[in-house]
Design a binder for these strands. Structure first.
Lengths: 340, 340
DNA sequence: AAAAGTCACGAAATCGGTTTCGTGTTAACA
DNA sequence: TGTTAACACGAAACCGATTTCGTGACTTTT
């Protein structure tokens, strides 16, 4: 990189002190207008721009927000990023995005790097491996250091900080109830292993809806997908049971279910109804299009970043963690309809 | 944020100088092992971590790579990010991701902020508005400042820097030729306006394949989609023409085409074949699944970041811009087959 | 004419580290 | 015993900015 022009260069060139240059560039009243003009002209000519690092060090703030996500090639998370970015930008912040790739180790490392002064605060959705381990020390340390932290979507009670979540229980309930109201009684649930708590919560909603309708939950109708293995073959098993509907806790599971149903020659939504989660492009463009629970990722990101910036900029306040619950809603499309 | 522990704190507490602390922590031979032990123990106890900003300022390097993308909710771009992130991480770099949202103004601003010392280099895919304006001054200035820059996917000749692109002409050619070989002759092209150069290049490939097959290109079969208006209705028009195949330059256009074809009762792939671009989830999960050109976004990201880091770390070399062309390949699925 | 005030600028501290160069003490050598 | 080398540490410069405080030269007031 070319040697960038600094205040010192300007000072030397023009035979003044660095303080004079700094003041002149910030249009201080202490400097005579001739000197100001001279300095500003020189700065413009050589396209002087103050060094961010120096400013950040001096001001003890970076105006950068760190974001750690488990993955990115996923409609929900990319939507959240958009929300975060837009919210951050509005307040003059930039975002630094990293990925844990669902790995505990990478999450710990990334957290460590970012929390060493590179960012003013962090927005994180926890890696699945961490949820499985139940080892949250790295987050707890962060909170102890009083670095502003907002968790979203995948959160745990052990970490005392601000949180933004969707009403997963309610969403699972809504989805299941919709199927029940459509006359479905044998509803399969395609979910994640229980340690991914959003999956567990959605399952609670599913069970609640079934209980209310006096339907016994049947463990054989529940599939906990292990993403390390082939997804489709795991889901396929449940199709051997007698089912008339599928509730999948994400888009991919829903799309796979639909594909299997088609292969088996089942007509959708007549013989089998399918409902998904995350209102992404797959749900929208598949045919039939898939009824889903819209998670409002953009809103989540926006709320998370607003909460965080609030914390960053008003640190005097006594700290009382907030939890924002975003209600999700049902987007009815072609893959569900009342059974005739 | 809590007052973080610094070298100065440790020095004062232990009654030594800051230089001694610094050396002790870096395990310098200049310091006696007793002193080292004492200092290191203290540092561990209070969980001392050196401040990144200070180090970055001192070392004149940030180990951060800036990435500016036009959008993120898009399978191709999120895949590229993954590639960049993985490549960067491998070399000890972090990435700072920003979005231009296809806006010229935002691109200029973001570029300005990031290039003021916050990053060691930049990876950018140009915003469509910028491509339309043909105003690349902000990039040219960047190159003049000798800030390492790699452009990918959407690149222009006016900017002299390293580039990573897919062989768009070749890809368009391959896709079209595949349709022709399947006996299709009336092939619609759903593309972007011409200023988005990747669209223009893919079109060239399309035209080349047609010419080779002695098929006259028919302007009525070409749709230039304006994304500010409703996409579907624009594509719908071409279905009034007599066509037996569609080549769409991205996934969304392909999915829309498929939906329209279905609504019109055309059987896919018999009556009409459809081929897309970007091998994303939509293509994979729609039914029939869509034959597409795989862009290898991950590889692109990886190559781009490797090229960039090479530049950053070997700046003595004489500068001769490199252009890496990544060959794309055809992934044949259910939406195309020979006409009978 | 002496005291006070204004103007325009510079010296130096600061942010949190690293590193070069001294320097006082002790041990080893001639 | 005098010279030199090794050892262990500190002072100070540096990265690139900002900001407080001080100060010399002039002007104004009494």
């Amino acid at each position: 990189m070319k040697q960038k022009i600094t205040i010192k260069t300007i000072a030397k060139e023009l035979g003044v002190s660095t303080s004079t240059v700094s003041k002149a560039l910030r249009d201080s009243h202490e400097i005579s207008s001739e000197t100001k003009d001279k300095i500003q002209a020189y700065a413009n000519l050589y396209n002087y721009k103050p060094n961010n690092l120096a400013l950040q060090l001096r001001n003890q703030k970076t105006k950068v927000i760190g974001v750690i996500l488990p993955k990115i090639v996923h409609h929900f998370f990319s939507t959240v990023i958009m929300g975060i970015e837009e919210g951050a930008n509005k307040k003059g912040y930039n975002i630094m995005v990293c990925f844990s790739n669902e790995s505990y180790k990478k999450e710990v490392e990334t957290l460590k790097v970012l929390s060493n002064g590179s960012v003013d605060g962090l927005i994180v959705s926890i890696a699945s491996e961490t949820l499985e381990n139940k080892d949250f020390k790295h987050f707890i340390d962060l909170v102890a250091e009083e670095i502003p932290l907002v968790l979203f979507d995948r959160v745990v009670d052990e970490i005392l900080c601000d949180k933004v979540v969707v009403d997963d229980v309610g969403a699972g309930y809504k989805a299941t109830k919709h199927l029940i109201e459509n006359g479905r009684k044998k509803i399969a649930l395609i979910t994640t292993p229980n340690h991914v708590n959003v999956g567990a919560l959605r399952r609670q909603g599913y069970e609640k809806a079934l209980i209310e309708a006096y339907i016994k939950t049947d463990k054989n109708l529940i599939v906990e997908v292990d993403e390390k293995k082939d997804i489709k073959s795991q889901i396929e098993k449940v199709f051997k049971e007698d089912i008339d509907a599928v509730f999948a806790v994400n888009e991919i599971y829903a799309a796979n279910s639909m594909r299997i149903a088609k292969e088996k020659g089942l007509s959708i939504p007549n013989e089998i109804s399918i409902i998904g989660f995350t209102d992404g492009l797959i749900s929208e463009y598949s045919s039939p299009s898939i009824t889903t629970i819209a998670q409002h990722g953009f809103t989540m990101g926006m709320q998370a970043v607003e909460l965080l910036i609030e914390r960053i900029e008003n640190e005097t306040e006594i700290y009382r963690p907030k939890k924002i619950v975003i209600s999700s809603d049902l987007k009815i499309r072609e893959s569900t309809k009342p059974s005739s």
